[in-house]
Nucleic acid binder design. Sequence first.
DNA 1: AAATGCATGTAACGCGTTACATGATTTT
DNA 2: AAAATCATGTAACGCGTTACATGCATTT
Lengths: 201, 201
Amino acid sequence: MADSESKPSRAQASKFAVLGMLTLKPMSGYEMRAVIQQSIGNFWSESFGQIYPTLKALEKEGAIRQLPGGTRSKRERNVYDITQRGRDELHRWLASPPYAPPKRNELLLKVFFGPAADLTKIREHVQTAHDHEAANLARYKQIEKELRSQCANEPGLPFWLMTLHFGVAQAQAVVRWSEETLKTLDSMTQPKSARAAAKRK
Amino acid sequence: MADSESKPSRAQASKFAVLGMLTLKPMSGYEMRAVIQQSIGNFWSESFGQIYPTLKALEKEGAIRQLPGGTRSKRERNVYDITQRGRDELHRWLASPPYAPPKRNELLLKVFFGPAADLTKIREHVQTAHDHEAANLARYKQIEKELRSQCANEPGLPFWLMTLHFGVAQAQAVVRWSEETLKTLDSMTQPKSARAAAKRK
DNA sequence: AAATGCATGTAACGCGTTACATGATTTT
DNA sequence: AAAATCATGTAACGCGTTACATGCATTT
């Protein structure tokens, strides 16, 4: 029964991200972009160039359908909702093991090539990463407060908190690593004479 | 003087990864693949389809040059070495802020859509991530021992340890998060009656 | 003699971002 | 009236993996 899917591809994650978003509520492509950024923006992203064609394709295969033009506002908005068939497809995808693409961390690559680099620049990169994740950490704490108070009854809350806690754990790890690494870099940059001078003080 | 580079592109990270590897020692494309996997494999990867064309391009622009056929072994091997011009280019790239591509974590995406999923499957995904990172952690400890003993005099050692420690920090974060998350998932899966039964025991 | 491993390369494909094009509506 | 925002969509491009093709050398 219609298995001519040809190429299994890597995972079609974008497709299921879009499909999944419609389990939260019916949405237009434009709105979805904003909702993605606000909800899963810390670990996922989709661009318009991805969202619009995906919505078209999903509608074609009957996984979603366009809601009759509510015309609540006069602007043209194509609002989609997930169908039962879409829910089934999503359910299957959620059960399949998550695809883990090969990791790539440009910061670490630059650190690794340290001997060929200007150490003060490497230090800057690490410091920037530190500040960035420290800011994230503060943001996450704030988000957790808001989530707990404003989404107390949402069935998704426990899961949203799990993803948030992942972000917290990861940010903490980077912050700690950066601090340790900055110390090491400083001790390498300072010539022995400076260290001796510091001792004399 | 020849600035018709047209498109700046995102970063050309592969190009500089390849270039950087040649600061370790002269290598062939085939060997480089193996060295990449062994040294920076935890946070970087390059495929042959990327390495060979990149080597050709780098040679064309004078950043690397082919070593005269050592003919030490009879097999055809194209061994490349970095040139001064290549070192300069690499130095500039290392000084530029690392490009951070939008994060994508499929595991978290599946967790986020938990209410639309089979919870036992989500639990499996988290458990798999846990086991995977726990194994990594053990591996990293082993690698650190080997590095410290076998590369004690390498000028790159402190930097290699930094990248390794990043891996450790990250793996620890995932392990801790998974453990917490598994507990939460279990408490959600067990119906109240089961929890009550457990209490009676 | 066959199988495995070394070694290089190309072509196709997937998928994602960026940039561009278009136009309506609301705000300043 | 101009600027900003809402809203949809397409085309081009970059870049990375996978698969394929080829052939020699070594091991079994």
